[in-house]
Design a binder for these strands. Structure first.
Lengths: 342, 342
DNA sequence: ATGAAAGCGCTAACAT
DNA sequence: ATGTTAGCGCTTTCAT
């Protein structure tokens, strides 16, 4: 019960020294301390030395919040991504690019919840971050219009915002699906099926549509081959049954997302999977260790993250510049599963 | 070149309304606006209505920075993790637990760089975050002593801080290695080898030591069986050669980290790997899809992340409470690779 | 129940 | 080259 050294009642902390304390200790004006802290070259060497000594003596460290309030900028950008828990190379690229530009990154996870996304974006706006990168989840972001009007830089990553006009960087979903289809086609497959996310989400819609277009372009019928929907083991098993059995079974499969790919592999089992030609949309962790190693069309995640920061910085520098959308192509990674002949 | 609507010279934004503007618009005092914004029940209904109308009309949103400066708390905790790019379930658990406590999470990646770690921690301190969780990387964190003295709550995750005394939550490395060893031993293996991270890093040191202890406890010789060091394909291939060839080849392997496990699988190739009994330390993404499916001793990542936040909140509530270290046991995940007989 | 005024810790005009 | 003074936008005594 005796008061511990330095500690006191719950919640309260020993008072930290401020610039005023340093100024008093050094026997100079507040402004001089500020100058030293900000490396202003117009400070006389003796003064600088005295101030630095006082800073060391008091263990003074400037309060970034006060500086931010005064200068109006935070030096921080926010990233609202859908999942922070899983491997997220885009986020890593954002962080590195941001850091290289002297910006701190505040990352938060929307967890595939519209309410959470809204809450996070609102919080980032209240904090007056210098800019925001968001992997949109909800379909309508009209509530951000006032922020855009007041000049808050916002960039969408992976798909466009809904209902508002903002800069965007995303993969070329349609051509990615085309690459996958053509690859299988070139390996002799005539019946190629698609399983992917539900069409309620943007990418699921885009990719299913692109796959239908590919079928049409090759003069093939669509029925029984295109299966967008919920990615659950049950549904995936059911649609695989439709696609792979019957009179004219598909001999190849395009999976529309990483989750789809993994679920398909789990449902089929390694044996069956090794007999079916598969090209996955989106990279899968350690795809080369799977058996057979997985052929995918991979998003250029690093480039996407980098571009997001660049778009944001451009918007920060010039709020009046025209809104820009950058589409990034995908690349085919040949590893085995996509080269199984018909 | 004509000025766009709302836009102006590069860098400048339209001025946002402040509380003063709202007060003027509503014809009330500043203090009343503050009361309404903070849901103070002592505001008369007509006043509240007027204020709310003004807020809507002006599109006013409070500036969190100013509030933070005034109240002294940020409502934000920092997490300095070693890698933000890869799957990081601890970080996800931290975020969820923090959110559940009404705290915002500022996550940053130290990227296995001591300088970067130091810079991030310093930045978080300058920002006066309410607390910091760090996955320590460097060996000496003495530079944080002044922060601890001034009451900054800091919690180490995964291993202890170096040179200072701070709360810590970590896995029970020694018993985890013991579990792996015993499991293989029970499946008839008499020669069990270990490959893992270099002993310069804390966990590499702990796990190699624990493995040596396990060998000794079973009355087995150590030479040729314990191989801590850099995890590169070259070195791993070399030490596997030593361990698996020769007069008395090992019939089972314990890998000391996720990276080690994956590198071993790559170096051996799936064929050879399927004949060697392997237990990995630490979970591997999609371990059940590998062939053979990978048996591991898994860290309780969710529990670790949760506990880190709980320790931090306890420290925030009472800066004087005794420093606490919580050790979390690991659990064996039997999947196939560890049950291959000798 | 409402308002006037002080101040959180810092930077930026403006002297000197 | 150094100091004085006024805020940044908010919360918080303290009056009324």
């Amino acid at each position: 019960m005796s008061p511990a050294r330095g500690g006191n009642a719950a919640g309260s902390r020993p008072k930290r020294p401020t610039m005023v304390d340093v100024a008093r200790e050094a026997g100079v004006a507040l402004r001089t301390v500020s100058r030293v802290v900000n490396d202003d070259p117009t400070v006389g060497p003796e003064y600088a030395a005295k101030v630095r000594a006082a800073i060391t003596a008091l263990n003074y460290r400037p309060d970034e919040r006060a500086r931010q309030l005064r200068t109006g900028v935070t030096g921080t950008i926010g990233a609202a991504v859908r999942r922070i828990a899983e491997a997220n190379p885009e986020l890593a690229a954002i962080e590195q690019t941001a850091r290289a530009s002297g910006l701190t990154l505040l990352a938060a996870s929307t967890d595939f919840e519209e309410a959470r996304e809204r809450e996070i974006l609102a919080s980032m706006c209240r904090q007056r971050l210098d800019g925001i990168i968001v992997e949109p989840f909800g379909e309508n972001h009209g509530y951000l219009q006032p922020e855009l009007d007041e000049g808050m830089p916002i960039v969408a990553m992976d798909r466009p915002m809904g209902g508002i006009s903002a800069d965007c960087v995303m993969s070329d979903n349609a051509s990615g699906i085309g690459i996958a289809f053509h690859h299988l086609s070139r390996h002799g497959h005539r019946r190629i099926a698609y399983v992917g996310d539900r069409e309620q989400v943007y990418s699921g819609r885009e990719r299913a549509a692109a796959f239908r277009a590919a079928l049409r372009a090759h003069g093939q019928p669509i029925e029984g081959l295109v299966h967008p929907g919920e990615i659950t083991p049950e549904r995936v098993a059911a649609v695989l049954d439709i696609a792979l059995r019957g009179p004219e079974p598909a001999t190849a499969l395009v999976t529309g997302s990483m989750d789809t790919t993994l679920t398909v592999l789990r449902v089929l089992g390694t044996e069956a999977a090794s007999r079916l030609a598969i090209v996955g949309f989106d990279e899968v962790p350690h795809a080369e260790l799977l058996k057979p190693a997985l052929t995918v069309v991979a998003q250029q995640t690093t480039k996407i993250g980098q571009t997001a920061v660049e778009l944001l910085r451009a918007r920060m520098a010039d709020p009046a510049r025209p809104v820009q959308t950058i589409v990034v192509p995908l690349t085919l990674k040949v590893r085995g599963s996509g080269e199984i002949p018909a």
